[in-house]
Nucleic acid binder design. Structure first.
Lengths: 304, 304
DNA sequence: GTTGATGCATTGATAATTTCGATTATCATA
DNA sequence: TATGATAATCGAAATTATCAATGCATCAAC
C-alpha cells in the first residue's frame, strides 16, 4: 500500500486554498505559519507534484493543486461525517446538524422548526445559517453545512434533494385597491409600476414572476427590496402590491398592515421547498426525518 | 474543527476487519501487533464508541464497528485515488489501473486489449484479474479493483457503468447436424438433451437462456461445463450444441473443431458488455478512454 | 536609495506521537 | 497443570510535528 497523506496536511491545504494566505490559513487551523508551510511542502513531496506556484511574495494554486483540493475536500468531509456519526453513536437524531436556509424561508420557518426539533429530537443540535442560495450551495459543497433548505428548482450540482412541499404565492395588495379586484386576480387591473419585487437576483423574484407568467410586465415597480419585510413595508406605505409566499403570510407578516392577500391568476403560482444534501452523505436517514419534520410546517406538504 | 482519526488507524481497522485477527492484520499492515492493537484502541477513544467487542480470546465487530468500517473504506479508497492521481501527474492514461474481468470475456479480449493499451497508452500499467461477477463487484467495492468488465445487466449496487457494446450469441452445433438446420435456428429441431450450457450460476447461461427465450427447455443437457472452452470440447465430442458469444468465436474458439456457428432465433440474442466503476471515482475520464479502447474490440461496439 | 512592512521559507530546539519488543493476562486444550 | 495462542499493556527509542525566531525577497513610502 502506498503512503497516504495525513488528513491534517490535507486540511492545511484546504485552509490555504480558502484563505489564499499562509498566515491567515495557519490561524484558521490554530497552528503557526511555519507548521502550515512545512505541511504543504510535505504534501507536495508525498504527492510528488507541485500544488502551488510560489512567487516569493505571493503564490498561486496550480491546476493540479486545484484538483487535489477538490478531492481532499470530499475526503475531509467524509472523515468529518464519520466522526460525527460515531460521536452521536449512530443515533440518527443526535449530535450537531448544520442547516442552511434562504432568507425568504428562514424567518418564517426556523422558529417553529427549532421548537419542533427541541421537542421531538432534543439531542439534535441544530446550527442554523441564513444566506443566499448560491452561498449556501457553496457551503454545502465545502462541508461547512450538512443540509440546505431552499426554493426549487435549483441547479443541484451533483447534490441530492428531498422535495418537502409547496408554498403558494399570494398577491398582496392594499385594502384600498382590494375592492376593485376579484380572485383570481387579473394583473391588468393593477396600476402601472405598482408591483414591488425583491431584487432581481433574488430567487423569489424569479419564482414569482415565472409562476405568474408575467415577466417584464410594465406593472413592476423598478424599485426593489432586499427582504420580504421591507417589501411589505413598501407595499403598505405606497399602497402598492407585491407577491408573498403563503408561508410568510401564515406567520403573520401582514399583521399591523393594511394589506390583504389574494389568489393570483396563472397556474402553479407557487414555489417548492427542498432540502438539499451531498450525494456522498452517510446521513440520509437523518435528513429524511428532518425533511418529514419540516414538511409538517409547510402550507402544502408533499414529501418525496 | 473536531479531531479527525488518522488514515493509518482507519486502515488498521480495515485490515482487522478483513483478517479478523490482530496478528495477521498487523502483518498485512507491516506493523507490529501492539501497534495495530493500540491503533484500534486509539480509534475507539477518538470516536468515543466501541468498535469491537473483546472476548479475551477472540473478538467481534460491533454494529457500529461494521458501519465505521464501511465509511472508512470509502475514505481510504478516495485517499488512495488522490495519491494515484497526483503520482500520475493527473495524466489520465498513466500509472496503475486494476481491471477485473469475467471468465467468459477475459480470454477473448484481454490479450488484444493489452496490446492496444501498450500501443496507445504505454504508460498505463494495466493489472488484470479474472473472477466471477460477484467477486469482482466485491473487489470493486473494497477498492481492490478500479474497474470491472462484465456482462450486463447486473445489479450495479450504487456503482456506475459505461455500456461498451453488444456481443451476439450464436448457436454452435456439430457439422453433422448443421445440414438439417437453417438460420435462424428453430430449437425444436435439436435433439433432446443436446444443448450444453455453463453451470447454472454462471451469468452467461442466464443471459443466453433469456436472450433466446428458452428457459427450462427439455433440450438442455443436465451436464454443465465451467468454461467456454470445455463447453466447446463437450459439444464437439458429443455432437451436441451450445451457445457461444460472437466474441469467443471471433477469437477462434471453434478452430480445430467440427462445430459451426448459426444465428439463433429469438430477438436480441446477445449480451451487453459494460465497464463498471465506483460512483465516487475521480477517474471517469480514464475509464471513458479505456471504454472507448475496449469498444473497438467488440463485435458490435455501441459506447454510451 | 533607504526604510519599514509584508509574506513565505528555513532553522533548530522542544514537545508530542508512533512504534517496537518484551511482558503480562486470559483462556482453551492437551 | 503445563502449553500455546491471542490480545492488551508497558517503557524505551525513534520519528514526527510544532513553534519561535530568523532569513530572504519584494514592495511601497518617503
Amino acid at each position: 500500500m502506498t503512503k497516504l497523506p495525513s488528513l491534517k496536511n490535507l486540511s492545511y491545504l484546504l485552509a490555504l486554498h480558502q484563505h489564499q494566505h499562509f498566515n491567515r490559513a495557519a490561524q484558521a487551523c490554530h497552528v503557526s505559519q511555519s507548521t502550515l508551510s512545512s505541511g504543504i511542502q510535505n504534501l507536495e513531496e508525498q504527492l510528488a507534484c507541485q500544488l502551488i506556484e510560489r512567487d516569493h511574495k505571493s503564490f498561486l494554486f496550480t491546476a493540479m493543486g486545484e484538483e487535489i483540493v477538490e478531492q481532499a475536500r470530499t475526503i475531509l468531509t467524509s472523515a468529518e461525517e464519520l466522526v460525527n456519526f460515531s460521536l452521536s453513536q449512530g443515533k440518527q437524531m443526535e449530535g450537531p446538524l448544520r442547516l442552511g436556509c434562504i432568507p425568504t424561508i428562514a424567518p418564517f420557518l426556523l422558529g417553529a422548526l427549532s421548537k419542533l426539533i427541541q421537542r421531538d429530537y432534543p439531542k439534535l443540535q441544530l446550527h442554523l445559517c441564513e444566506d443566499t442560495t448560491t452561498n449556501l450551495m457553496n457551503q454545502l459543497r465545502n462541508g461547512e453545512l450538512d443540509v440546505v433548505l431552499l426554493a426549487l428548482p435549483v441547479d443541484l450540482q451533483g447534490n441530492q434533494a428531498y422535495v418537502l412541499g409547496r408554498d403558494p404565492f399570494k398577491l398582496v395588495v392594499h385594502k384600498s385597491q382590494a375592492a376593485a379586484l376579484k380572485e383570481p386576480v387579473n394583473y391588468g387591473l393593477l396600476p402601472d409600476h405598482s408591483l414591488f419585487l425583491l431584487e432581481r437576483e433574488h430567487c423569489l423574484s424569479g419564482h414569482a414572476v415565472n409562476a405568474c407568467e408575467m415577466a417584464d410586465s410594465v406593472k413592476i415597480n423598478p424599485f426593489t427590496a432586499t427582504s420580504l419585510h421591507s417589501l411589505v413595508q413598501m407595499a403598505d406605505a405606497r399602497q402598492g402590491a407585491t407577491f408573498l409566499p403563503q408561508l410568510a403570510i401564515d406567520r403573520g407578516i401582514l399583521n399591523d398592515t393594511d394589506l390583504v392577500a389574494l389568489r393570483p391568476s396563472g397556474r402553479e403560482a407557487s414555489r417548492e421547498i427542498g432540502l438539499v444534501y451531498r450525494a456522498t452523505t452517510t446521513r440520509r436517514q437523518t435528513f429524511r426525518k428532518l425533511a418529514e419534520a419540516i414538511a409538517t410546517l409547510l402550507p402544502v406538504p408533499t414529501l418525496r
